[in-house]
Design a protein around this nucleic acid. Structure first.
Length: 231
DNA sequence: GCGACAG
DNA sequence: ATCTTGTCGC
């Protein structure tokens, strides 16, 4: 039987174990170059059927220049963890990693639906995924979670700092990807810097508020879930 | 002590 | 996330 106390404690224990394993080098690298022209950028997302205990994840690979989908992969399984704010990685990553592993090419960057550094423990699902896979990762979230920000100017590309009121640190940016539309929240995961993550986000949002990677992964995992539940 | 709380 | 009616606009 798992108690709430156990759930709250084990990520910290896990982080400590990982920190010990990687004592001689940084666990997370919150800096690095923007994806080069022609890079393969992956989008990942997950859909759930809580009643039937089914989870479906999708990983799509896009060409950064054309934004065309060049590869798709899905994975279906049982739900491994409940949704607990702050522990989203433990719910989403098992299926996400399964789907990612079915791609035949290695992504140059993975864009996650959620946060990286912008997390109460500075290890959101994007950071977590980066550490587990070694891939460059970043997060683009749709809501500010527990962080605060002022409204960016109305034009596309405008941004303001996303701040953790607990310590005043800048953990990401509120970025306007469409003029006059509410911003998205970009944060660094692994092996990419914040400015570079913002650039990548703008490259992935020529038309819609959310990155093309997220949109493609979202529709694919919903389709995969419907198929899994039906069949 | 009580809410708020990525998806 | 998921559920869920109507509405505005290209």
């Amino acid at each position: 039987m798992i108690t709430p106390v156990d759930l709250a404690a084990w990520p910290t224990t896990e982080a400590a174990a990982l920190a010990e394993q990687h004592r001689l080098r940084p666990l997370v690298e919150p800096h690095g170059p923007a994806p080069a022209p022609g890079a393969l950028v992956a989008g990942v997302d997950v859909a759930y059927d809580d009643d039937r205990d089914v989870v479906a994840a999708a990983a799509v690979l896009l060409d950064l220049d054309t934004l065309e989908v060049v590869e798709r992969a899905t994975a279906v399984g049982r739900i491994a963890f409940p949704y607990l704010p702050g522990l989203l990685a433990f719910r989403e990553l098992p299926a996400v990693i399964d789907a990612l592993s079915r791609l035949t090419r290695r992504p140059d960057l993975v864009v996650c639906d959620g946060y990286g550094l912008a997390h109460p423990r500075r290890l959101g699902l994007a950071s977590h995924l980066g550490v587990l896979t070694g891939l460059a990762t970043m997060g683009v979230a749709k809501t500010p979670f527990t962080f605060s920000h002022t409204a960016p100017a109305p034009e596309r590309g405008a941004w303001t700092p996303l701040v953790d009121a607990a310590d005043g640190s800048e953990v990401g940016r509120a970025l306007r990807t469409r003029a006059g539309v509410k911003p998205v929240f970009v944060s660094v995961g692994h092996r990419i810097g914040l400015s570079e993550a913002v650039s990548a986000t703008l490259a992935l949002t020529p038309e819609y508020r959310l990155p093309e990677t997220t949109r493609q992964a979202d529709s694919l995992c919903r389709r995969a879930l419907a198929e899994a539940v039906a069949g």
